[in-house]
């Protein structure tokens, strides 16, 4: 059985994920995470010693999905998306850079 997730653990994980949670959200998430992790605990019924982990499908097919060398495109310069078109979508930009609030406090 996994240990129970406490409200403090929820707050710490939220901080890692850069999520801000209100107190009522912490309580709700604590309840939900414990319910879901309780279900996930079933995986411990299986002995997986020696079973290789699978990150994606191509591994188990022996590279069939990304025909190895072919998956790399030719190394040539191509036009990319216009910088102004990208910066136009930013909440704050100055035609050259994305702008963000101050990073370092003096």
């Amino acid at each position: 059985m996994s240990e129970t997730v406490t409200a403090d653990v929820v707050r710490r994980v939220a901080e890692l994920a850069l999520l801000e949670l209100k107190d009522d959200e912490v309580a709700r998430m604590q309840k939900d995470l414990n319910a879901i992790l309780g279900h996930i605990d079933q995986l411990n019924e299986l002995d997986t010693a020696g079973v290789p982990p699978m990150a994606q499908v191509s591994e188990i097919l022996g590279g069939q999905v990304e025909a190895s060398a072919e998956a790399l495109r030719e190394d040539v310069v191509r036009p990319s998306i216009d910088r102004n078109a990208v910066l136009r979508e930013a909440p704050e930009a100055d035609h050259r850079f994305f702008k963000v609030p101050k990073v370092i406090e003096r």
Binding site: I40, V51, A55, I60
Partner: peptide, 16 residues
């Protein structure tokens, strides 16, 4: 290891 790696190993079993 307890969650992510375990799940990736079970993913191998499911695919097999």
């Amino acid at each position: 290891d307890a969650y992510y790696k375990k799940a990736q190993q079970v993913r191998t079993l499911l695919t097999r």
